[in-house]
Design a protein around this nucleic acid. Structure first.
Lengths: 363, 363
DNA sequence: CTGAAAGCGCTTACAG
DNA sequence: CTGAAAGCGCTTACAG
């Protein structure tokens, strides 16, 4: 026998009638005001739970109350990491009794103004821009947010942003990677899909240069850049393509650093197909620490993006801004990436004439 | 010199003052009422665009108007396909001037009631439940939606759902795959990670049985099930594990059908490591048509999920429900999956005694 | 501790 | 075609 459906309650007024209280008392009980009789508060909250009554966010927001909403914009990049970011974000916001309002920014379209207006209309208390495009400090959507006094944090903006942003320290990460390769004896490094032509490529090149110059070596002399365009789709194939391109060169680098794990993997497969043995003949670093990097043979050395730390830092910074005066700026925070050493990196082939045939075969 | 910032307008009343109109006229112009002077409507809409004014969704919703919002719930599965689904969904809704309200359902927690209450509180006009868990027809969150007269469509529910749902026809897909294998001569098929112990496994097994019985063959005699548990994380490793398990058997199947591409790939790698040649010694089918399936050697034959078609069917069904009487039910619609033939499938090894050493080596 | 009033921004009848 | 009224559900001063 089904339980009798309780009186349908869809407003504080109805709940008040149901409980024999005035709706003012009910409202105060819902919001945990101290002036209300503790027992009454209990009774109201229990009834809410039993009846599944949720106060209308519209009435609440219209009245001018808090919405406990954070606008979160994403770019529609088809990467598994994105899902991890969303998941962690939702959990951290929920722990603070906030709710994300997710919006996807279409790649290529006018990026954020429409979305940011929607956040404002929905009275989001704060905004997180994930992978925000062309991340200048003065983009129109940032101006809009500032003007409306909505604090915002950019997560991994594509550009130089000094304030209210969380960045992965790609520069330090690539410096570590390069230092590791240098220590092993590598003096000729190839960058696969990385150069200064796109925003996140700049700090990577800087990191490589940092590590080299610490040893008195020059970037121009030690580094080859292998890049075709900025496309990142079909990344495995792009890696293969770059490897093919590389194989056409007279001298191969002894180590490669790829833009991401997919490119590294594709390149590795293509090099192996051409008869090279990784890491004996050539070392390869990936980036992102994706599942595939544990599956290749040899397993790929790579760099972990520290997604949970990045998201946690973002949420922390946002709530610090939320509790500060409007217009407050906080210095951008850099999260350190973690180098993950596996089996695709080794010392370079010994420089014995005749041994390095493969490297000079095509000269 | 920066453009002079226009008078800040944040309500229809302010906009009306700005334009020298009454706020009633403005409201009607915004909503495109025919009674308003066409020129006036133009002027109001132009001003809205110039000033970036968006009417408050809260005022609108509170008044009882349409919210043009569709609640969309996802499970937090870390699969790249999820992002594709979200992207397509957003585009299709936007084309109909609707907006998705995304919510992530935490794996393992009480799945949907809280989320569905939020959708109702936000006055979502319709709801899409993606990968809705334990998809019975009578889940509490479905009852809640029905009771509140919010039409909903389940996309790929985990269970038998006959109404208001979009399903990928896994049964037909696996029947095609099995038929293809049977035609090639395979009479001993292994299912990797697939059995009837989990919802989406049932139609797959049915499909295999369909194809076999069409030839008068029996499932029990032709099919081996290789499964460890329902875990799908670290799917590559799970594939490897299943392959190891398989290699311990006295007789190997001549063809494998895996739960997904990652499991197929992991299994293939492990089998290759053990000295088997794919597809000469054993054929393998994946599922999902993920990027990795084009990258393995040999490239993986697989089944494409037809994400755009699935999402389009979902949105279409939802809008049909939206335009129907409350309580309308539509029969579940099955979208046909697409078998993608690549290089991992071939006829079974010829049954010459002495040739099939590998298959019997461990007996 | 509780009751009555006001108003957030909007739109839909209802008059003119 | 346009003006004035009412009310969606809520919460915050303001009285008692």
């Amino acid at each position: 026998m089904p339980k009798r459906r309780p009186t349908s309650v869809n407003s504080t007024a109805a709940l008040a009638r149901h409980l024999g209280l005035s709706r003012w008392t009910v409202s105060r009980a819902i919001n945990g005001h101290p002036e209300v009789n503790a027992e009454t508060t209990q009774r109201v909250q229990a009834a809410m739970r039993d009846l599944g009554f949720v106060p209308s966010p519209f009435g609440r927001a219209l009245r001018g109350g808090r919405t406990r909403t954070i606008g979160v914009s994403f770019r529609e990049l088809e990467t598994p990491i994105l899902v991890r970011k969303v998941t962690v974000m939702q959990k951290l916001l929920r722990a603070r009794h906030y709710r994300p309002l997710f919006e996807l920014i279409e790649e290529g379209s006018d990026p954020g103004l429409e979305v940011v207006r929607h956040f404002a209309a929905m009275r989001a208390e704060g905004v997180v821009l994930v992978d925000s495009p062309v991340g200048a400090e003065s983009a129109p959507w940032l101006d809009f947010l500032a003007q409306n006094r909505i604090p915002s944090v950019q997560l991994e903006p594509r550009g130089l942003v000094a304030h209210n942003a969380i960045l992965l320290d790609r520069r330090a990460a690539l410096a570590h990677v390069t230092e590791h390769l240098y220590q092993l004896g590598h003096r000729h490094i190839g960058l696969l899909g990385i150069d200064r032509s796109f925003p996140l490529g700049v700090p990577r090149c800087d990191g490589v240069a940092d590590a080299l110059s610490a040893h008195g070596a020059r970037f121009e002399e030690c580094v080859d850049t292998i890049i075709q365009s900025n496309r990142r789709f079909e990344a495995f194939d792009y890696g293969r393509e770059l490897a093919e391109f590389l194989l056409g060169r007279p001298v191969l680098p002894t180590a490669l650093i790829a833009l991401n794990d997919e490119i590294a993997t594709g390149a590795m497969w293509q090099l192996q197909r051409a008869g090279l043995v990784v890491p004996r003949d050539i070392s390869i670093f990936g980036f992102d620490n994706q599942p595939i990097s544990t599956q290749t043979a040899p397993r790929l050395s790579t760099v972990d993006q520290q997604v949970p730390e990045m998201i946690a830092a973002t949420v922390e910074m946002l709530f610090e801004l939320l509790q500060s005066l409007p217009g407050t700026t906080l210095p951008a925070r850099c999260v350190q990436a973690q180098v993950v050493l596996r089996d695709s990196v080794a010392p370079p082939p010994v420089a014995v004439p005749g041994y390095k045939t493969r490297r000079h075969a095509r000269s």
